[in-house]
Amino acid sequence: MDYIVRAVIQAVQLITSFDDSVISIASLSIRVSLTSTLIASLIGIPIGFILGTCKFRGRSLLTSILNTLLSIPTVVVGLAVYSVISRRGPLGELGLLFTPTAIIIGQTILALPIISALTMNATRDMDRVLWNTAVSLGSSRVQAAILLLKHARFAIVGAVIAGFGRVVAEVGASMMLGGNIANYTRTLTTAISLETSKGDFSFAIALGIILLLVSFSVNLGVYFFQQWTRRASIKTGERYS
């Protein structure tokens, strides 16, 4: 039990003293995870929306593939991207392997199915009547699509958070594609893995606590954002009442 208590004390010390190595590791983790979540959202939300609202041939097959990709192991994604960007791979000349960009590519692929599938579910559950309502009120197709996305915004934000949660906590792809290079590609999860294997549990647990704090902060930020948008929409009405 002692080492757990020591770890917590060390975590507090590391956080409050703004330890350089911890800041470097945490900031890289946040940077790559937010970037990959952003890219995956830009691609995944439209894919999920189309799969959720449009009927076309092959939709069921695409949905099945998407659902299968939800459970793809991170090391498999790491391996697939590795084979493409390693020196012998088709994109080997770009020199991406063992760079933060490589981690972002891997994490984007990991977050994409989650964000797409959850967006698809959020928009598929919407009544067809909602689309008809938007169109009959005078929406163009683009306006109707934006309205439906706005209608499902809280569920879509949930999808994005789930995507972020998946990438910020993964270790396999980051380890394979980033190489866990100190002060360059070492993320919170790869550092935890390394410190545990070295037997430095205290430092590993301290990093684990920081990882949880990062995750918690993002969720808290999103919660306040949702509350703020709700209050802002009510104020729009209050101005005239």
Partner: peptide
């Protein structure tokens, strides 16, 4: 042409925003 017509559907589907915002939606779209 659609903007000259209006439909009151059997199931009054409302968008997830305040009544005021639902009310003025068609005007904003125009």
């Amino acid at each position: 042409l659609r903007r000259k017509m209006g439909v009151i559907w059997q199931n009054p589907a409302m968008f997830n925003m305040t009544v005021y915002q639902n009310l003025i939606l068609a005007l904003r779209l125009r």
